[in-house]
Design a protein around this nucleic acid. Structure first.
Length: 882
DNA sequence: CAGCGGACTTGCCGCAAAAGCA
DNA sequence: TGCTTTTGCGGCAAGTCCGCTG
């Protein structure tokens, strides 16, 4: 293959499609940080060996395409599933109020103090709020997507393989590992090649190819059937619960697609949608309106309608707005993009002021008097006495430097060494215990009190739709906890005050009242090209900002989430060509081209992050473009050993077999360089992304991660889902999810009680085995008409018939099996985090469609938050393919 | 075109609530 | 029913990527 060149790809690629996985070091790794410490060693052990490999192949594609053809139908209604959504609440929006205050400033620049207006909360009216109706869902989706004809292909996929090796031999089920390396070997497409080693022993595995696997996936088969069934209830659970909080969702009103930024492709798609109408949903909301005036009215209307017959309504509405309307103001997707027309919210809530506890710490054994400010910071440190930060000199140094500024030059306290914070630490433990001991009524009352105070900050009304605000609580002061070996760990993160905060709100909306009497906002803006409601400068790094955005369940976020996945789907259409192109460039005479080609290959095959440059005041982590020579070691004949700290200082370790030209290129890139030098010295993320954009509109490095994750999920589900009960299907899904997590290197630290849990399970198994032996003896005796022996503790047992004993034996065996399986799963997932990929990388439509096809309730796969976040995906057709 | 400000997504963790279990 | 284990959820740090500026 290697040589191959493009040609192969195409078809073949299938195989490749998926990225490889790597092994994870062990937990320890995570920490990695290690530099300093010794830790590691141990850790490794566990898994140590593990290697994971992967290979995969996928195939996807391929031809199959056919299948799908139908892909989706335009929205159709049908889907059983319902969307969750929810939202009930609505709250009264408030009344209108006047704009009054307002004040001024607006505009972006400048900051000025603001003014506060006094009004309170009010929300302004302008907008009408509508309550939301529940559900959302919309239709669109697909349609959209589909629309694009291009995608069409999607079809089924093939499989992929997985393999991992990890740890424990027994492990899991999944097991098969197959690696494929080569896909076809011979030809192998790119993907193939990789392989990894896994355990020591066998390094590579290869996979035999893919094809095998591929079976045509079963997709369709069930489709229909399921439809209805699948989703049970229509309303989603969410709704139900909702009462409490959340969920909300909005009806959409308006129009269009919007979105903007980029992506043409998407755009295209969307447009179509409009046509379809169905689709509308999400998108619409966004912009809503073009015309301001109407807006309200329309909105209302919309809302109302919605409630009932949503679909229909939607359509209509959509049409209306959509195409045309938007045009007016802002083009939907235009570059600059207007993100909203009206925005009303109540600002942010601040943490309560510090309450001095008066507990004195000791300095050289003597109690020390501290001012409340000094005590506050001492307490921040004291409560961290039992954390690993106490082993980090940098943390202590940074803390001391900042605390000293508060203590003053001549304070008795001069050195951290002589400080004894334990009185404060003990006080803290006691407080914690007190809290724990509170009766449930007290706890409940406290909770309600808090909710009451926060309620008004929890919601915003964007274009007439009530939406949940994500992080309306201003971050409290504390000591900065950076990850990995962060140079700034331990520094004091000062308290944020209203005068640090810039508010972004609709022009006609009342300015939120500043919650702290006597103070005022830094600035008020009315910028509808951004989605943030407020921001302040990060106290640790004043050049950076902390933003307050709408929650993930909001229409705005949903829209951009959908666009993200549509872009990844578009990549699927271009992937063969892109692979062919970079393969060709492995041997380019132009060194820049060669580096771009190899970097793209790594990003594609290994799902590496782009790797932006970092400042000296950040932890030293790398991504593809910033890999150092020491991070990639070529091991002849064709294996690359990767070992580096990635995002969040999570260690990435993987041994991968690559194509010969890649291997040689890496060797050449390393030539003459030192360990710490950049492997890709002629490259950075902007150059790489600029190149990717030439290959596909809107393409950037991170799209490969989304694409690889989603395509892997789809193909794994296609490979293994075939019958079984719901629990088994859920298990299949979890395994597919795990593969993705491994590919993306989503790790978690091993729970503190992991070991205990495992040994506890083992004890139970041993116990059951003892019981089993006894039962077997009793059975034998029973068959001979003899009574059972006394049990271990001397008790006499009932005389049971052989049939009854056999039944007990079977049950016990089943229990043992179940527990053994539990252990295996636990070990298998001990360092793997499944949540991150589910939240950020897996197109929810794949999951929803799979649930519909297999009659698995979507609630089994998505919790309440995810149901709300993915409301836009709930209506996909069962035969949706990524 | 490098550097930077700016906006938004991704990611791990810990605590609390919920679920499972003896 | 109390305790343990799991799950949900928020917190906030750390990435990506874009567009402007000089």
């Amino acid at each position: 293959m290697t040589a191959s060149v493009q040609p192969n790809f195409t078809d073949m690629d299938d195989d490749d499609e998926m990225p490889l996985r790597f092994k994870r070091p062990n937990m320890a790794s995570k920490s990695n940080v290690s530099n300093s410490e010794p830790n590691t060693s141990s850790s490794q052990k566990h898994d140590g060996q593990v290697g994971r490999q992967i290979s995969n192949a996928n195939s996807l594609n391929g031809q199959n395409s056919t299948v799908q053809k139908d892909k989706t139908v335009p929205s159709s209604k049908a889907s059983p599933v319902k969307s969750p959504l929810v939202s009930p609440r609505v709250s009264p929006p408030t009344s209108k109020t006047s704009p009054a205050n307002t004040v001024a400033k607006n505009s972006k620049p400048l900051a000025s103090p603001a003014n506060r207006s006094t009004n309170l909360n009010q929300c302004r009216s302008n907008t009408v709020v509508k309550e939301e109706k529940p559900s959302v869902s919309d239709p669109n989706d697909e349609s959209d997507s589909e629309d694009d004809k291009p995608l069409s292909n999607r079809v089924g996929l093939s499989k992929s393989s997985s393999n991992h090796c990890n740890k424990v031999p027994g492990a899991s089920t999944s097991g098969p590992k197959v690696v494929k390396d080569e896909d076809s070997d011979d030809e192998m497409p790119l993907s193939t090649r990789i392989k990894m080693k896994s355990n020591p022993g066998a390094p590579t595995m290869k996979s035999p190819d893919t094809n095998k696997n591929n079976k045509p996936v079963l997709p369709k088969r069930e489709q229909n059937g399921s439809a209805s069934s699948t989703v049970p209830s229509k309303r989603s659970p969410v709704e139900i619960k909702s009462a409490g909080q959340s969920s909300v969702k909005k009806p959409r009103l308006s129009d269009t697609s919007v979105s903007a930024k980029s992506k043409q492709p998407l755009v295209k798609a969307e447009k179509n949608e409009d046509d379809d109408e169905d689709n509308i949903p999400i998108s619409q909301r966004i912009k809503k309106s073009s015309t301001p005036v109407n807006k309200s009215s329309s909105t209302k209307k919309a809302t109302a309608v919605v409630s009932s017959s949503r679909k229909i309504m939607k359509k209509k509405i959509v049409k209306k707005n959509s195409k045309y309307s938007q045009s007016s103001k802002v083009p939907p997707s235009s570059g600059e993009a207007q993100k909203w027309t009206t925005l009303v919210h109540n600002g942010v809530i601040f943490p309560p002021p510090y309450k001095p506890h008066g507990v004195k710490m000791l300095y050289k054994g003597q109690p020390v008097d501290l001012t409340p400010e000094q005590e506050e910071v001492a307490t921040m440190y004291a409560v961290m006495l039992d954390t690993e930060y106490m082993d980090k000199p940098k943390f202590k140094e940074n803390f001391m430097n900042d605390w000293k500024k508060l203590l003053g030059r001549n304070h008795v306290i001069q050195s951290l060494e002589h400080c004894d914070f334990s009185p404060i630490y003990d006080w803290h433990l006691k407080e914690k215990e007190k809290k724990k001991q509170m009766s449930s009524e007290e706890k409940k009352a406290l909770k309600e009190e808090k909710l009451k105070q926060e309620e008004k900050y929890m919601w915003a009304i964007l274009d007439g739709v009530k939406e949940k605000v994500g992080n309306f609580r201003v971050e409290p002061p504390g000591l900065f906890r950076g990850r990995g070996e962060h140079p700034k760990m331990g520094k004091l993160k000062k308290r944020i005050r209203p005068s640090d905060i810039t508010i972004n709100i609709g022009k006609d909306a009342p300015i939120p009242e500043c919650p702290i009497p006597g103070e005022s906002w830094k600035e008020i803006r009315h910028d509808n090209t951004v989605t943030w409601l407020a921001f302040w400068n990060d106290p640790i790094n004043p050049k950076e900002f902390k933003y307050v955005f709408l929650a993930a369940s909001s229409t705005l976020k949903g829209q951009s989430d959908k666009e993200k996945y549509e872009k990844a789907r578009l990549l699927k259409e271009h992937i063969d060509r892109i692979r062919a192109a970079y393969t060709k460039d492995f041997n380019s005479k132009d060194p820049v081209k060669r580096q771009v080609a190899v970097a793209t290959y790594l990003i594609d095959k290994l799902a590496l992050r782009a790797g932006n440059e970092k400042d000296d005041d950040e932890a030293e982590t790398v991504g593809c473009c910033t890999l150092k020579v020491e991070n990639v070691e070529p091991v002849p004949p064709d294996t690359l050993k990767f070992d580096f700290l990635g995002k969040d200082s999570i260690r990435y370790q993987n041994d991968v077999r690559v194509l010969e030209p890649v291997f040689k290129a890496i060797q050449q890139f390393r030539k003459g360089k030192k360990d710490g030098d950049d492997l890709f010295d002629m490259l950075d993320t902007s150059k790489l992304n600029a190149h990717l954009k030439e290959l596909m509109p809107g393409l950037t490095a991170k799209v490969f991660r989304t694409y690889n994750a989603s395509i892997t999920l789809q193909s794994e589900l296609g490979r293994f889902t075939d019958g079984g009960d719901v629990a088994e299907k859920v298990d299949v899904y979890q395994k597919a999810n795990k593969q993705v997590a491994v590919i993306c290197n989503h790790q978690r630290s091993v729970s503190k009680t992991h070991g205990v849990q495992i040994s506890r399970l083992n004890e139970k198994i041993e116990e059951l085995k003892g019981v089993l032996e006894e039962l077997k003896i009793d059975l034998a005796r029973s068959k001979k008409g003899k009574p059972p022996l006394k049990s271990a503790d001397g008790k006499t047992k009932r005389n049971l018939a052989p049939e009854a004993l056999q039944k007990k034996i079977d049950e016990t065996n089943k229990k043992i099996k179940k527990m053994e399986n539990q252990i295996q799963v636990k070990e298998d997932l001990k360092t793997v985090a499944l949540g991150t990929s589910k939240i950020n990388y897996l197109d929810p439509r794949i999951t929803v469609a799979w649930c519909k096809r297999n009659e698995v309730p979507i609630e089994k796969m998505f919790n309440r938050s995810l149901l709300a976040k993915f409301a836009w995906a709930m209506d996909v057709e069962p035969d949706f393919t990524f």
